[in-house]
Amino acid sequence: QIFVKTLTGKTITLEVEPSDTIENVKAKIQDKEGIPPDQQRLIFAGKQLEDGRTLSDYNIQKESTLHLVL
């Protein structure tokens, strides 16, 4: 699982696999929060994550925290 922290300070927990794409993660966030993926920007280690890449591409491991910017 990974954590996604929103600007409001809320933390969302997501069940993911390293092979999941960023697009996939955004879809999971939409399921939980109702935020359309095209409004979501995910930041990890100061980098904006691209939809077509996977979590493992960015070396995002379990218990990692991503930041969600709208």
Results as ranks from 00 to 15, higher is better:
Thr65Pro: 03
Ala27Met: 13
Asp57Leu: 03
Asp57Ala: 06
Lys10Asn: 08
Ile29Phe: 03
Ile22Arg: 00
Glu15Lys: 08
Gln1Asp: 05
Asp57Met: 06
Gln40Met: 15
Lys62Ser: 15
Gly9Ala: 04
Ile35Lys: 03
Thr8Lys: 11
Gln61Thr: 12
Thr21Cys: 05
Lys62Trp: 11
Leu7Asn: 13
Glu15Asn: 12
Thr8Ile: 08
Leu68Ala: 02
Gln48Met: 15
Ser56Tyr: 11
Lys47Trp: 07
Ile29Leu: 07
Thr8His: 13
Glu33Asn: 08
Gly34Ile: 02
His67Glu: 12
Leu68Asp: 00
Glu63Ala: 11
Asp20Glu: 09
Gly46Tyr: 05
Gly52Ile: 08
Pro37Met: 14
His67Ile: 13
Gln48Glu: 15
Asp51Leu: 06
Lys10Cys: 13
Thr13Phe: 08
Gln39Cys: 14
Phe44Ala: 03
Lys47Arg: 12
Ile35Met: 05
Asn24Tyr: 13
Asn59Phe: 08
Arg53Phe: 14
Glu50Trp: 05
Leu42Trp: 01
Leu70Ile: 14
Asp51Ser: 08
Asp51Phe: 04
Lys47Met: 14
Lys5Leu: 14
Ala27Ser: 12
Glu15Leu: 14
Val16Gln: 02
Thr6Ile: 12
Glu23Lys: 12
Val25Met: 05
Thr54Lys: 12
Phe44Met: 04
Lys5Glu: 07
Asn24Phe: 14
Ile43Ser: 10
Thr65Met: 09
Thr65His: 15
Asp51Pro: 07
Glu63Ile: 04
Leu49Gln: 00
Tyr58Thr: 02
Ile12Val: 06
Phe44Cys: 04
Lys28Gln: 10
Gly34Met: 05
Ile35Phe: 11
Thr11Arg: 09
Glu23Asp: 08
Val4Lys: 00
Lys10Arg: 13
Leu55Lys: 00
Thr21Ala: 05
Val4Gln: 00
Leu55Glu: 00
Ala45Tyr: 09
Ile60Val: 08
Leu49Asp: 00
Asp38Arg: 11
Leu42Ile: 07
Lys10Gln: 09
Gln39Ala: 09
Val16Cys: 12
Ala45Lys: 14
Lys47Gly: 06
Gln48Ala: 12
Pro36Arg: 08
Leu14Arg: 00
Glu33Arg: 05
Ile2Cys: 03
Ile35Thr: 07
Lys26Met: 06
Phe3Cys: 05
Ile22Phe: 03
Thr21Ile: 04
Leu70Met: 11
Gln48Asp: 12
Gly34Thr: 03
Ser19Asn: 11
Ser19Gln: 10
Leu68Arg: 00
Pro37Asn: 07
Pro18Gly: 10
Lys10Pro: 05
Arg41Asp: 06
Lys26Glu: 01
Gln39Glu: 10
Asn59Val: 04
Glu15Ile: 13
Pro18Leu: 14
Glu50Arg: 07
Leu66Asp: 01
Glu50Lys: 08
Ile43Met: 15
Gly46Ala: 04
Arg53Trp: 10
Ile12Glu: 01
Arg53His: 11
Glu50Phe: 07
Pro36Ser: 08
Ala45Met: 14
Asn59Tyr: 07
Ile22Thr: 04
Gly46Asp: 06
Asp38Leu: 10
Glu15Gly: 07
Gln40Ala: 05
Glu23Pro: 03
Val25Cys: 06
Lys28Ile: 06
Ile22Met: 04
Asp31Thr: 10
Val25Asn: 00
Arg41His: 11
Asp38Trp: 13
Pro37Gly: 07
Lys10Glu: 08
Thr11Ile: 14
Ile2Pro: 00
Ile22Cys: 03
Ile35Tyr: 14
Asp57Val: 04
His67Arg: 08
Glu17Ser: 11
Pro37Trp: 12
Phe3Lys: 06
Lys62Ile: 12
Arg41Glu: 08
Leu42Cys: 01
Thr21Trp: 05
Gln61Ala: 11
Asp38Tyr: 11
Glu63Asn: 14
Pro18His: 08
Ile29Ser: 01
Gly52Val: 07
Glu23Leu: 15
Phe44Pro: 00
Ser56Leu: 12
Val69Phe: 13
Gln40Thr: 05
Asn59Thr: 05
Glu63Asp: 15
Asp51Arg: 04
Asp38Asn: 11
Arg53Pro: 05
Gly52Leu: 09
Asp38Ile: 10
Gly52His: 14
Leu55Cys: 06
Ser56Pro: 03
Gly46Ser: 05
Asp38His: 15
Asp20Cys: 09
Ile29Lys: 00
Val4Phe: 03
Asn59Gln: 09
Lys47Ser: 09
Leu70His: 09
Glu23Gln: 13
